[in-house]
Design a protein around this nucleic acid. Structure first.
Length: 474
DNA sequence: TCCAAGTCAATATG
DNA sequence: CATATTGACTTGGA
């Protein structure tokens, strides 16, 4: 209550001003409608600058559609132009940690795909962009931090150790191990490349593995069940995200109506996906041009299939979905000749991180994964999946280097090279930047897309069995 | 319960 | 030092 008025101004506030670019120094649009203040206790633990009126949540609720991609783009510009780090920005402005900020800035999801909670950071960013003193404030914070840091540094010199608050009674750690931190802190699992490969392969067969399959995978890879579960959750959502950014990028230049901010200006060169495809094969889709790209293709493809009705069999059979250039699977394990350097410690490294191994006592010498044999032979699908995993496993010797290696063919540092420092001229007109997801790990992308197809099919089936109006916009 | 979406926080990389 | 990646956890919905 009482805010019908403020809501209005807030809405304006949030609205993207114009394409104006911040440029360094202080260019302050004008702005003056500081929304009134109307305390609201709600829950906003943020160091929210001053008062700013309604809680962000309310603001989010009334916020018009924001161009997340554009916002992050501008934020990135402002930050780099002024040498401000994302840690500071995140903690001060968004109330998020550096990692989250990095992620957000690099892969913003389209507004309509965000939950209320997910929109919050973007509203904050927009608000920040509109604040004439945004940069100054942050700079101040930065200075203050530095000062505090210096101070601490000096004072600590006087005495011995830097006052570490110490952790509550540690001691009694195994007295004969100098480096292991108090392992009460959980080591953080680090999956070996081979393990990831195996999981990806499994995902490809079945994006939503049954508990049983998960168990098997865990056992075979010698991982905790929860780790496998988490991996699938994470992988699924990250693949999904990958597609979102494409959607955004594609949409931002091909117009595509619907959604999008009231600023339709510039849209220039439209470098459609560059042709990396050298090896022909794959994708039967005619070059064509229109539409919003291949991904749309895949989607429609999936849709068609599931409606056609046979998708199911193909999917369940574990046969392999007609993923275009798949086939590499086996082929891939070919180049086992490489790993010239750094493979030395490979072995030692692999087994290291894991602690207490499950009941299955195996491995011990050699290559970690030995896979005696599949535990049991279950139904077709399952066994098929696990088998393939195993197969892949046994033949590994190479890493997933394929992608990594190919992707970095001596790229002479192109733009964005020295950045960090100051240059930013390009940012004013470049626009290219993330536009095309270079061919870096293009391979991976392909794989992910294919994998996603399975994912989609799965969801379609699920939805179909029910009977709601599915509303995913393809 | 499972899942997705957001995050955190440790660790990798640059 | 900064930014990027990623396994795990938290929340909220069905």
């Amino acid at each position: 209550m009482s805010s019908s008025e403020s809501v209005k101004s807030l809405t304006e506030l949030v609205q993207q001003p114009c394409p104006a670019i911040e440029t360094s120094k202080d260019g302050k649009p004008q702005e003056s409608s500081e929304p009134p203040v109307s305390e609201s206790q709600s829950t906003t633990p943020l160091p929210l600058s001053g008062h700013s009126a309604l809680s962000i949540q309310e603001l989010v609720a009334v916020s018009p559609e924001l161009d997340t991609y554009g916002i992050t783009k501008r934020v990135k510009e402002v930050l780099t132009d002024n040498n401000l780090g994302q840690r500071l920005f995140g903690e001060t402005i968004l109330g998020l940690t550096q990692g989250s900020v990095s992620d957000l800035l690099a892969r913003p999801k389209p507004w309509h795909k965000l939950s209320l909670k997910g929109r919050e950071p973007f509203v904050r960013m927009q608000l920040w962009l509109n604040d004439p003193n945004n940069v100054e404030k942050l700079m101040d914070m930065k200075r203050m931090e530095k000062k505090a840091y210096m101070k601490r540094r000096h004072s600590s010199v006087s005495d011995s150790q830097p006052c570490e608050p110490s952790s509550v009674g540690i001691d009694y750690s195994q007295g004969a191990s100098p480096q292991p931190q108090h392992q009460l802190k959980k080591p953080r699992v680090v999956l070996a490349p081979e393990e990831k490969e195996a999981l990806k392969r499994a995902y490809q067969q079945k994006p939503y593995p049954s508990p049983k399959t998960i168990e098997e995978l865990a056992t075979q890879l010698n991982l905790k069940t929860s780790t496998v579960i988490n991996w699938f959750h994470n992988y699924r959502s990250r693949i999904r995200r990958e597609l979102f950014i494409e959607e955004i990028q594609a949409g931002s230049q091909s117009q595509a109506g619907s959604s999008d901010s009231p600023s339709a200006r510039s849209s220039r060169a439209v470098h459609s996906s560059e042709g990396d495809s050298c090896d022909g094969v794959d994708t039967e889709g005619p070059p064509e041009g229109k539409q919003s790209g291949l991904e749309a293709d895949e989607y429609s493809n999936a849709t068609t299939k599931s409606q056609g009705g046979q998708a199911e069999s193909a999917f369940e059979a574990g046969e392999e979905v007609p993923q275009d250039a798949r086939s590499s699977e086996k082929t891939e394990s070919f180049h086992l000749g490489m790993e010239s350097l750094e493979d030395t410690d490979d072995e030692g490294r692999l087994k290291a991180p894991r602690q207490s191994s499950p009941p299955g006592s195996q491995s011990s010498g050699e290559t970690l994964e030995t896979m005696p044999n599949s535990a049991t032979e279950e139904d077709a699908s399952t066994s098929a999946a696990s088998t393939s995993v195993l197969t892949g496993e046994s033949s590994f010797k190479s890493k997933e280097s394929s992608e990594k290696m190919l992707s970095v063919p001596s790229t002479s540092s192109t733009l964005a090279a020295g950045s960090q420092k100051a240059n930013s001229i390009q940012s004013l007109f470049s626009f290219s930047e993330a536009a095309s997801s270079k061919n870096t790990r293009d391979n991976t992308l392909r794989k992910k897309k294919a994998a996603n197809l399975n994912n989609i099919i799965h969801r379609l089936e699920k939805a179909a069995s029910r009977e709601e109006p599915v509303e995913w916009e393809f």
